[in-house]
Nucleic acid binder design. Structure first.
Length: 362
DNA sequence: AAAACGGGGTG
DNA sequence: CACCCAGTTTT
């Protein structure tokens, strides 16, 4: 009989057990039919902080629009952002384009094939480098994403706050040990994430049918719902946007957002942000040039109010539609340009703007 | 170490 | 409404 405790056995059996579970339960997803690092990388960028169900249609559209990394490298960035529209975290799209160009132009189209080199690419951090390195090249490096934090915290009873640096090291070290026992690195990485995504879920883990039930500290001590420990994030910031929508004929004045703020490189209207909601145009501080332009036009009815919830901001927006007569030929404030509705339809825009356009100009 | 960065699904 | 999603970059 073994005189040692069984507590170490789980570190040996964990990976193979999940690999076996995965062989039975894995979902059929489009990026699981390829070993091409370009497609795998694309899928991983899309899936950052994004659910599979939300990302899948975007993946299909991107593969269709840019079948090769060279196609993506040669893409018009505005068009790429338009394709990304609605997915959020738009720096992902800009970094996607930058890395596609870098690989195509500087690396002769050959995608970096090690964890170490992948990490150097814009938009690729520890998670994505491990994912691409293992899925496309079979490198034995563990992925540590939100699913992995949850599964490991529960099975191994780790009570450290997963938002802290020390906890990240704890989980990474454990993940590296567990990877050593994996039969196949790619399969094990897919397996632990899939297990977290569809079985060991945040609110209602299916403990009764769990393949590691008898080794799971959380289950054995009834703490499934206390793990992982994650400190609360700061309350969302409230913001008040007043948009002045200049209209002339069938055209609207839009601008590209260039500030270091949300929606960088997307298009919206002339914007004034205030500390309080402003429901009347005359209460909004406008520059002299904009004010005089407003005075030469006519305000079209009451402002349209809209609310946009982001994970970190709550934006209340008021849209003031100002109609300018055709006789008015003065120039627009700096940054603004006239666009027809057809042109606007192909510009990348925040959901807030897209929703307004649909409501007002359907 | 903490904040910033989207939008949508889920219970 | 609160939580969280195949995280990364900037401050």
């Amino acid at each position: 009989m073994d005189w040692q405790s069984d507590s170490n056995d789980i570190e040996i059996t964990f990976a193979p057990t999940l690999e076996q579970w995965y062989s039975v339960h894995k979902r059929d997803l489009p990026w699981r039919h390829t070993l091409d690092p370009y497609y795998i990388w694309l899928s991983e960028i899309i899936l950052q902080q994004t659910r599979v169900a939300q990302g899948k249609p975007y993946y299909e559209r991107f593969v269709d629009a840019y079948p090769t990394i060279s196609d993506m490298a040669n893409a018009d960035e505005r068009k790429l952002l338009r394709l990304w529209q609605g997915l959020g975290y738009y720096s992902r799209a800009r970094n996607l384009h930058q890395t596609a160009r870098y690989v195509t132009e500087k690396l002769d189209g050959k995608f970096p094939n090690t964890y170490h080199d992948l990490l150097k690419m814009k938009g690729i951090g520890a998670y994505t480098a491990a994912a691409v390195a293992s899925f496309a090249f079979g490198e034995r490096v563990p992925v540590v994403d939100g699913n992995v934090y949850r599964v490991l915290a529960r099975v191994f009873g780790i009570t450290e706050d997963i938002t802290t640096t020390t906890a990240k090291k704890t989980f990474a070290a454990l993940a590296t040990r567990l990877m050593q026992a994996a039969v196949d690195p790619a399969t094990y990485n897919q397996a632990i994430m899939e297990f977290g995504a569809i079985h060991c879920t945040p609110v209602a883990p299916d403990c009764l049918l769990c393949p590691v039930q008898q080794q799971c500290v959380a289950y054995l001590t009834g703490r499934q719902h206390q793990l992982p420990v994650k400190s609360k994030k700061a309350p969302v910031r409230e913001r008040f946007f007043s948009y002045v929508v200049f209209q002339q004929g069938g055209r609207l004045a839009l601008q590209e957002r260039v500030a270091r703020d949300i929606w960088q490189n997307l298009y919206d209207f002339y914007l004034v942000e205030t500390d309080e909601p402003k429901t009347a145009l005359r209460d909004i501080p406008l520059s002299e040039s904009v004010s005089s332009l407003v005075n030469r036009g006519t305000l079209v009815e009451a402002p349209v109010e809209a609310m946009q919830l982001l994970s970190h901001q709550r934006i209340r927006a008021y849209f003031f539609l100002v109609d300018l007569p055709e006789t008015e030929t003065g120039s627009l404030p700096i940054g603004l340009q006239w666009y027809s509705l057809a042109e606007i339809s192909i510009l990348p825009k925040p959901v807030l703007i897209t929703n307004y356009l649909a409501k007002q100009f359907a």
